[in-house]
Design a protein around this nucleic acid. Structure first.
Lengths: 370, 370
DNA sequence: GCGCATTCTGAAAGCGCTTTCTGATGTACC
DNA sequence: GGTACATCAGAAAGCGCTTTCAGAATGCGC
């Protein structure tokens, strides 16, 4: 790759010499400029451009015309400062490139566009310190709302510092909404029914005849992980099916984490008949690990995930999972953030997951018969 | 899903009644508040908090302490207005949930974090009007830089209106950088070598023995599509291998577009021995189509993509593709935007693609022998 | 101990806009 | 024709911060 090359240049109107026909020499055209040029007062120009009040038709037309000619763009900072309200909302996620988040973000972006809002996006890469730091930045930007997408932590310290940052923000009129459970954050929530979804999945897998399960989990301190794990494990227990401790492997909440966890399971020796990965992303890694080790899915082992990110349909075999309407969840959390805040209590919008059986799961291999 | 439920509430310090110990009643703590409380002037407080100048140690300490106590957060809008510079940069893409973009965005976010910048992200969903609109919004926000990620259009009108929006922005000191070719936009560019990459891929596929090719393309007016197509087709032509018109199917630049294009190819009757999808995302759809139609890849037909988005390694079979360092490209475009602008000409950073042969391609099926 | 250079602090002028408040103009009615 | 009431334009006061400028306080040399 070479730098300092040049693209086919084109004739840009006298950039170096003078300047475009009417534009002022200063960097930006201000409302003042427009007003002067149109021969009206600052106030009138403002009113015309914002439609705040009636303005005589001819003045109105003049202002509009000059604004166009001068290519006037309002200074959003000045507007924000004067009107103390901003058109930007902040979204904090762990990683833009995680398909789970990307799918939710899509819904958020779409809905933001409908409201003519700008989205400031921040990736924390699961670093709690960075998360706090970003909230401070969004607070500084006077973002109209802050959206937290993705699992919270089961961690007292984190909760405390999070609350300390968010509470003054909310007191100052900022809106906060989250996807996933954030204990003790008093905020509007879009809450995927992780526990119930995992339970339903467990029942479906039991119905297929499985009695010997493995679980690939992410870090236990993530609420999403602990909820899904608990839902799955409890249902097995209720059915009288034990979940052996050595059948549970914990690793990172990523594709590679899934690969690592599955590999660990394989190395421990005899495999269960069915494995549940707490997220699809981990399941993708697990599937690769099983393939690399020559474990046939679903012939020798069934595999299921959670989330139903778009890609899992196109895997071989397509992945059984608990389907969450991710795009919709993004839309909803955005709507919660935009709607009038509930007077006292925070709203919780529960999102049900639906078990989708695809060909990554099948009846257990005969060798697993009791 | 039910709404208006309540999360386990926690004791928030007297939100309704009075207020937290020292905080003022107004919505936000201002620098003025801090200065008064610390018994110094506004100027001194500002200097302490920005490290703009030396301040006597004891005053310094007092300011810092009160700022902490009052949980002071500067108003970024006021700062931006007063100093006419902002800490936000704008990124415009087509769809956050497209893995190609998501991977680049990751690099962008990482690099932005290093520079303590906030990223405002906008999805256009390939609507040129929305693209223009977003640029206007970012201009209003006085974004320090605007990044355009993704293919430009080969379209005079679009170029013109794009230029009209961008040119005043740049004249006012705004920085613009893009990924992919944007004809006649005089901006710093991270330029994947689409033509060369596609040519190299064609050669590799010829080397495998293929002589009968098909191509699945996206909309021709996208520069990325036309470059890749041209590189591929020209190389075939140079090798004396014809590319029949009925072996080319055009569709949307998405997974479903790839599925549709592949289906069209299948329905036209006899298949080529090798198919090139101009992006991995389309290749994923094509792979699904071939599977659904019982066409064995690579047994009956070889399939190759372009981009090397992370997921294609985990497909069955793993996809042959032209690998682009997407994360790095994101980093680079961000760096271009942050670096001092080149005095006269725009910089172009060429990014080479590397052909990666995986198992979705193989020697042609014997039935295709000449 | 005095004068001068050197720090450091505070007052004040904006940055570009919104939004009262005030005043001017026009209309309606008696 | 004069008063009362709308209606609409303009002056001006901020919004919360940075930054210049001038003045106060300190240090030093002689």
């Amino acid at each position: 790759m070479t730098a300092d090359d040049s693209l086919p240049s084109d004739p840009v109107p006298d950039r170096a010499s003078g300047r475009a026909s009417r534009g002022p020499d200063r960097a930006h055209v201000t409302l003042q400029d427009v007003a002067k040029e149109a021969g009206v007062s600052l106030a009138t120009a403002s009113r015309v451009l914002n439609g705040t009040a009636q303005v005589r038709a001819d003045l109105r037309a003049r202002v509009l015309a000059t604004a166009g000619e001068l290519a006037y763009t309002p200074n959003a900072h000045a507007q924000a400062l004067a009107s103390s309200s901003s058109k930007a909302i902040g979204v904090i996620c762990h990683d833009v490139s995680d398909p789970y988040f990307a799918a939710i973000a899509r819904g958020v972006m779409r809905t933001a566009a409908d409201h003519e809002l700008l989205v400031m996006l921040a990736s924390t890469f699961r670093d709690p310190a960075r998360e706090i730091e970003y909230i401070a930045m969004l607070r500084a930007q006077r973002a109209r709302a802050i959206l937290l997408i993705g699992s919270g932590f089961e961690d007292r310290d984190w909760e405390r510092s999070m609350g300390a940052e968010l509470e003054p923000y909310q007191r100052a009129g900022g809106r906060v909404a989250v996807v996933s459970r954030h204990r003790s954050l008093r905020v509007d929530t879009v809450l995927p029914q992780n526990r119930e979804g995992a339970a339903a999945l467990a029942r479906a897998l039991l119905d297929l005849g499985h009695r010997d399960f493995g679980v690939l989990t992410g870090p236990r301190e993530l609420t999403t992980v602990s909820d899904r794990f608990a839902g799955f494990a409890d249902t097995l227990a209720d059915a009288g099916v034990p979940l052996r401790a050595d059948r549970v492997a914990e690793s990172g909440f990523t594709r590679d984490g899934g690969y690592a966890a599955a590999t660990e399971l394989i190395q421990r020796g005899d495999l269960p008949s069915c494995v549940f990965a707490v997220t699809d992303v981990m399941a993708i890694g697990a599937l690769a690990a099983f393939r690399d080790s020559g474990v046939d899915v679903p012939g020798e082992l069934s595999l299921a995930g959670f989330d139903d990110i778009p890609i899992v349909r196109d895997l071989t075999p397509p992945l059984t999972t608990v389907s969450l309407p991710l795009d919709l969840m993004g839309e909803r959390v955005m709507q919660l953030a935009v709607r009038e805040p509930a007077p006292k209590r925070s709203r919780v919008e529960r999102i049900e997951g639906k078990v989708v059986l695809r060909s990554s799961t099948a009846a257990p291999h005969p060798s697993h018969a009791k």
